[in-house]
Design a protein around this nucleic acid. Structure first.
Length: 232
DNA sequence: GACCAGGCACATC
DNA sequence: GATGTGCATGGT
C-alpha cells in the first residue's frame, strides 16, 4: 500500500487508474497525433526551445527559423550566434537556448557516421538516453521528448503537467522526482510507442484546459469521476 | 504589474 | 542530497 497525501491507495487501484485515465482522456480529446513538428530536426529544436516556455512563444521562434530555412541542425549549426539569438528571441532565455541549440546540433552532426547513427534503433534506449543527457542543456524531459517523438523510442515523457495532474489525482506524493513518477506510470502501462506518445499529449491537453497552476477547473474535467480532490 | 509557461545547470548549505 | 537561483519573452 502507498500512503499518499494522507490517503491510502492500493497498488491494484493504481494499476487500474493509470490506464483508465488515458482511456477517459482519449474519449474526450481524441487521438492527439503529437508532437507539433514535421521533421526529426524540427521536433528536437522545438524540444529545446520549449523548456520552461509557453508553446505559443516557441511557435514564433520556429516561424522565424522556418522563414530562413533554418529549421534543421545543419543549417542551424552554420548560422551565426547573434542571428540565431535574434530569431529565437520570442521563446525566451534566447542566449542560453542559442548556445544549447548550436552545441546540440554540433554534437549530433559530428557523431560518428552522423545523426542517423546517433539515433539508430540497433542501440539500447538507455545508451542513447545517457548520450543525450550528457549534452549541455538536455535534461530528462528534453531527452525523453526527443527519444519519444523525434527518434521513436518508447521513453515516457514527464513534464510539469504530469506532476501536477498525478499529484492532484493523489497517485503521486508530490515531490519532483522525475524517474520516480516515470517509473510509477510505466510500471502500470503497456509498453507501446504510440500509447506513450498519446498519453503524454493527452496530459498536456488536460493540463492546459483544466489544470493550470493556480486555478484547477473541476466541473467539466474528464477525470472528474476519478479525482479525489473534486471540488477542492 | 504580478504571475505563469511542456527545464536545466550550477552554487551553496 | 535537498534547496535556491539565474535565465527572458509574451500572454492573462
Amino acid at each position: 500500500m502507498f500512503v499518499i497525501e494522507k490517503e491510502i491507495i492500493s497498488k491494484d487501484e493504481i494499476a487500474f487508474l493509470i490506464p483508465q485515465i488515458y482511456k477517459l482522456l482519449h474519449v474526450r480529446f481524441g487521438h492527439r497525433h503529437w508532437w507539433p513538428g514535421d521533421t526529426r530536426d524540427e521536433i528536437m529544436i522545438g524540444a529545446i526551445l520549449t523548456q520552461n516556455t509557453a508553446w505559443t512563444n516557441v511557435e514564433k521562434a520556429i516561424k522565424n527559423l522556418k522563414k530562413v530555412d533554418c529549421l534543421s541542425l545543419d543549417r542551424l549549426a552554420s548560422t551565426s550566434r547573434s542571428e540565431l539569438e535574434k530569431m529565437i528571441r520570442p521563446s525566451g532565455y534566447f542566449r542560453q537556448k542559442a548556445e544549447r541549440l548550436m552545441n546540440f546540433a554540433r554534437i549530433v552532426l559530428d557523431y560518428p557516421d552522423g545523426p542517423d547513427a546517433f539515433f539508430h534503433h540497433s542501440q539500447n534506449l538507455d545508451e542513447i538516453r545517457d548520450r543525450l543527457l550528457n549534452i549541455n542543456g538536455v535534461g530528462p524531459e528534453t531527452a525523453d521528448s526527443i527519444l519519444l517523438y523525434a527518434a521513436s523510442f518508447p521513453s515516457f515523457v514527464i513534464d510539469a503537467y504530469t506532476f501536477r495532474i498525478f499529484t492532484r489525482m493523489a497517485l503521486y506524493d508530490g515531490k519532483k522526482d522525475y524517474m520516480k513518477l516515470q517509473k510509477l506510470i510505466t510500471d502500470n502501462l503497456e509498453l507501446d510507442l504510440d500509447l506513450y506518445r498519446d498519453y503524454h499529449a493527452q496530459l498536456v491537453e488536460l493540463g492546459k484546459r483544466y489544470c493550470r497552476n493556480r486555478r484547477p477547473v473541476c466541473d467539466t474535467c474528464p477525470l472528474n469521476e476519478l479525482c479525489p480532490k473534486k471540488g477542492a
